[in-house]
Design a protein around this nucleic acid. Structure first.
Length: 584
RNA sequence: GCCGCCUUAGCUCAGUGGUAGAGCAACGCUUUUGUAAAGCGUGGGUCGUCGGUUCAAAUCCGACAGGCGGCUCCA
């Protein structure tokens, strides 16, 4: 089925949903009901006292199907704004829309389908019988603000899935099930990677030895990339004086999202830092800089703290305490392009190493909301055109996104797609012409004049913690060898082989292989089962044969048949595989 | 923060007004195991917290906390 037809079907179904809700809950106010990727939704304001939950969906779905089965024809009717207003007199949201649509004196269209007529610009099937009801499922109830603005009333949104047939719906529902199995919160628990304690606080996960291993593997890889592209690691404190953020502009914009720290011995107010950039300016400012000193590239993995609103916290993807593989490059105008390319190359390599596909988003300022951003128009225009030119000259395909810029400058964001097609913003390169001015950063140029450097903010994979969450789902917990918290699991056949296995473990450990030995008093079968469910890349049973120098039978993750190999070949294989992935 | 839902043993979950259950895990004993679950036994819960209704609350009501699905936000 072509996309346009499917869209018409979904759009028509949204009308059926509204019709059903209208029948079941008279007095409901209607907002809007657009189509979305997998179906449609409709926003409603239910009468006072009616609360809708997921339990009510089957009933609504049934009513919806009943109405659709009435073979109603979608009839288009063009009316004047005045007529439309009269028709929708009890529908405040519709009236608001009519007012807007008719600004230029245009007519309004109404679509009638049987018992239900809705203000609508069109795009329907001819007859409600064309809606494939076996591909329909109402699946979620959610809250949503009218027109997406939190100052507006909260409406109730009903989401519907709609595909062209039963089979496609089943495929999609199955995909949702698979995604659930990959959920990093669930896998994080099953694989023992991190825990969240109510006593410590939400949004502040504790990484277990295994989780910390994955996390530091991610960080060490970024560290190696940093080194290659000339970023030098610095170390900076977690708190600093409020003054720093007042100068940077963060205080004005994000004060409510910063955590305050008070000293008992002075009146000074400190803040836990939500980002590193202002501190890095102070490393720059500590010396008189020459044009010859630039670029100065600083990298930092310090913990960052943001007081996110409780409803926004989730697993590892939205945290109150996290870090970034952050870096700031201070350079001259004529170095911008080279520095951007430098960083972009490292990002491309990182994204490739992790096996993520991606696209590039050029995040620009929203010119209609200038108050949200720092700096002058011409500064922004210069920064934005520099980035656009750079992308075009390098034949990099990108999509522009208005309103996605940082408050101090435009960004180039790398949007990664994971193995099941979900998108995440990870890497970013940002051009900032504002902060160097605010901090009065200068360098002495060739001609003896003091000039402001350009500041490039960048992150390779963003936050290692968040990225770990993304990777858990991307790999479904089956980390590649170099990231796996346990790379080789040794399974002694019986108690008398434990000492031998432990000695082997020591040997592997000394070669920097992450190895664990299962000393439990269990059957071999049980120990294999446990190791397999922990998604360990290599499992080796250790018994008389192995300890006696015979070939080993290696159980490789993902395949049931074991591979025969000598001990030395196996060790070489593992070591080379780890090294391969880490060669930067 | 907003709308809705959820919270029972370490984990996954049953239990709809009459005093708490299963599987897995843990621990003990037996077993000494050759590639996805050995057998038997034991311990473990003021049913998220606080308050209310009731002769009686895991169960009904309220507040708070935490979680989930969205919305808003995301330096």
């Amino acid at each position: 089925m072509d996309a346009q037809k499917l869209d018409a079907i979904r759009h028509s179904a949204a009308h059926m949903l509204a019709a059903a809700v209208f029948e079941l809950y008279p007095g409901t106010k209607l907002a809007i009901g657009p189509t979305i990727e997998n179906g449609f939704y409709y926003d409603f304001k239910f009468p006072e006292g009616v609360t809708l939950s997921e339990n009510d969906l089957p009933k609504i779905e049934e009513t919806m199907k009943k109405i659709a089965k009435g073979n109603h024809v979608f009839k288009r009717r063009e009316v004047s704004a005045a007529e439309a207003k009269k028709f929708e007199k009890d529908q405040p949201f519709k009236l608001e829309l009519i007012k807007e649509f008719s600004k230029d004196g245009q007519n309004i269209t109404l679509y009638e389908s049987g018992p239900f007529t809705d203000l609508c610009r069109g795009g329907h099937v001819d007859n409600t019988s064309e809606i494939p009801l076996d591909g329909l499922k109402l699946h979620k109830v959610a809250g949503a603000y009218w027109r997406g603005d939190e100052k507006n009333p909260m409406l109730t949104r009903i989401y519907g899935l709609l595909f062209s047939n039963r089979k496609e719906l089943a495929v999609y529902l199955n995909m949702l099930e698979e995604a659930k199995k990959r959920d990093h919160r669930r896998l994080g628990k099953e694989l023992g990677l991190f825990v969240i304690s109510d006593l410590v606080g939400s949004g502040m996960p504790l990484y277990t030895p295994k989780g910390a291993t994955v996390r530091s593997s991610i960080i060490n890889y970024s560290r190696a990339l940093n080194k290659r592209i000339g970023f030098q690691e610095v170390h900076t404190p977690n708190i600093n004086k409020a003054e720093l953020f007042k100068v940077s502009g963060h205080y004005d914009k994000y004060k409510d999202d910063m955590l305050e720290v008070k000293s008992h011995y002075s009146d000074e107010v400190y803040y836990l830092k939500p980002m590193n950039c202002p501190q890095h300016t102070q490393i720059y400012a500590a010396e008189k800089r020459s044009y010859k000193d630039l670029p100065l590239r600083l990298a930092d993995f310090a913990n960052l703290y943001r007081d996110e609103r409780p409803g926004e916290l989730s697993g590892l993807t939205r945290l109150r305490c996290f870090s970034q593989d952050d870096g700031h490059c201070f350079c001259r105008d004529d170095q911008i392009e080279e520095e951007f390319n430098n960083v972009l190359m490292a990002i491309k390599e990182a994204v490739g190493t992790y096996g993520l596909s991606y696209w590039i988003r050029l995040s620009l300022r929203d010119p209609k909301q200038k108050e949200k951003y720092l700096g002058e128009d011409n500064t922004w225009e210069k920064a934005e055109s520099t980035l656009r030119k750079l992308l075009k000259e390098n034949a990099i395909t990108f999509q522009e996104a208005v309103g996605e810029a940082a408050f101090y400058g435009p960004k180039m964001d790398i949007m990664a797609k994971d193995s099941i097609g979900r998108e995440w913003q990870i890497s970013t390169i940002q051009l900032d012409l504002n902060m160097p001015q605010r901090f009065c950063l200068t360098y002495v140029d060739k001609d003896g004049e003091e000039k402001h450097p350009v500041m490039i903010h960048r992150a390779l994979v963003g936050s290692p913690e968040r990225f770990m969450g993304i990777l858990i789902e991307h790999y479904a917990g089956a980390f590649p060898l170099w990231l796996a918290p346990v790379q080789v699991q040794l399974v002694p056949v019986s108690a008398k082989h434990i000492d031998g296995a432990l000695a082997l473990g020591k040997e592997l450990d000394s070669l920097d292989v992450r190895v664990a030995t299962d000393t439990a008093d269990e059957t071999v079968g049980k120990k294999i089962r446990n190791a397999v469910s922990q998604k360990i890349p290599y499992i080796v049973v250790v018994g008389d044969k192995e300890l006696g120098g015979e070939d080993w039978m290696i159980r490789i993750r993902g395949q049931e048949e074991q591979v025969k190999m000598s001990k030395n070949d196996f060790i070489d294989k593992v070591i080379n595989e780890i090294k391969d992935r880490l060669r930067v």
